Amino acid sequence: MTNSLRPQGHNRAPLPPAQSSADGVPSPRSPQNQKAQANSRPASSGAKQRDAFFDNAKYLAIVLVAIGHAWEPIKGDSRILEAVYTVVYTFHMPAFIIISGFFSRSFDASPSRLKRLITGVAVPYIVFETAYPLFKRWIDEDPSQEISLLDPWYLTWFLCALFIWRMTTPIWKMVRWPLPLALGLAMAATVTPEIGDDLDLQRVLQFLPYFVLGLCMKPEHFHMVRTRTVRLLSVPVGAVALAFGWWAVPRMNTAWFYHRDAAQELGAPWWSGPVMVLAMFGCSLLLTACFFAWVPRRHMWFTALGAGTLYGYLLHGFFVKAGDYQGWFEAAWLHRPLGEIFVTVCAAVGVTLLCTKPVQRVFRFAMEPRMEWAFKRDAAELAREREKRDGAAAREKVNA
């Protein structure tokens, strides 16, 4: 264990304030003092420093998401793989959503932030909600596959949910008890099958408490779980979770971990829905804390990839679905231990490549479109530009 992972007591550097990115997912930046930040780099540089911990956490979480999707077609009757799959699904999306909530704290529905929300979340949702059904029509030769912006397909549910969560952020910042209220809505959703599939509202509501928790968190909460004691305790906690997952495989419906159905739709009594919301919220927080405890806080070889996690998230689905439609996962050797390891490595390497800068440059038109033509110019921005032009003209006049 490196010294950089050890807690630094009262001398450790604070985490950065919350900011939102252009791509609609958390974009951690540091240092806290913007004036010091401006003095520490050339005036011509528009790049902002990013906090390594959150970039590392985002990258590792998205790798687990891709691995989980790759495991789904091959886990079959493997009780061990099913147990690991269950444990991973308990915390990988909650961890990512908590970070999303933490970096949404500054969202105030101002024109600039609404513009970033539209270009970084709504537009990618429309693009990929159209692209995935077209892809299925082509590769699976399924002309009946419909395109509907009201029914999120496969991975696009997260963009739909993130848009709704961010738009409601001012409400959660205003109410007195945001987390209990969010939990209440999640519990109510699990007993309301009438919600249906429109906008995947079941997932929006059942994952809502994690986003609201992120909104409520402060930097010191992340410091609390990144201590040597928590890291050591997380080892037996993880072992117990894997053992419990192995025990629960034949006894529990895995669909609970997807948070997309009401209790009645899973063939369970209505009262089990609220109970499972609370139980899974507690288990998810415990394993998420263990995950955060082991996320490196220093710059690693993969730290820069944290800025491209939305690319990896949305693009890896095409490869997973192509393999599913074309029968790539049906080979018998993939369902043996060495085959499962091979699939795991391929998923990790594949999503890593999809987070790289070359891929970002190619697909930026869909993920981070500028769309200046679609928005009115902000009056304050126009005034600043006029002031800058007038100042430049005055200097030229003096020099002349």
Rank of each mutant, 00 (worst) to 15 (best):
L5G: 13
L5H: 12
A13E: 14
P14T: 10
A18D: 04
P26H: 13
R41E: 12
P42Y: 10
G46R: 13
Q49I: 04
F54K: 07
D55P: 01
Y59N: 05
I62A: 08
G68F: 02
G76K: 12
V84H: 00
T90Q: 09
P94V: 08
F96S: 13
I98Y: 00
I99M: 11
F103H: 02
R105G: 07
R105T: 07
S106P: 02
S106W: 03
S106K: 09
S112A: 15
K115M: 07
R116G: 06
G120M: 05
A122F: 12
A122Q: 04
V123P: 02
Y125A: 09
Y125D: 06
F128W: 11
L134E: 11
D140Q: 10
Q145G: 01
Q145E: 12
Y154C: 01
T156R: 05
R166G: 02
T168C: 08
I171H: 06
M174C: 10
P178Y: 11
M187H: 05
I195A: 08
R203V: 00
Q206L: 10
K218F: 05
T229F: 03
R231Q: 14
S234Q: 02
V235G: 02
H259L: 13
L266Y: 02
P274T: 03
A279S: 06
A289I: 05
R298S: 12
R298F: 11
T303V: 08
G308E: 07
Y313S: 01
H316S: 05
W328L: 14
V343H: 06
L354W: 06
T356S: 15
A366Y: 03
E368M: 13
E372V: 09
G391S: 11
A392N: 02
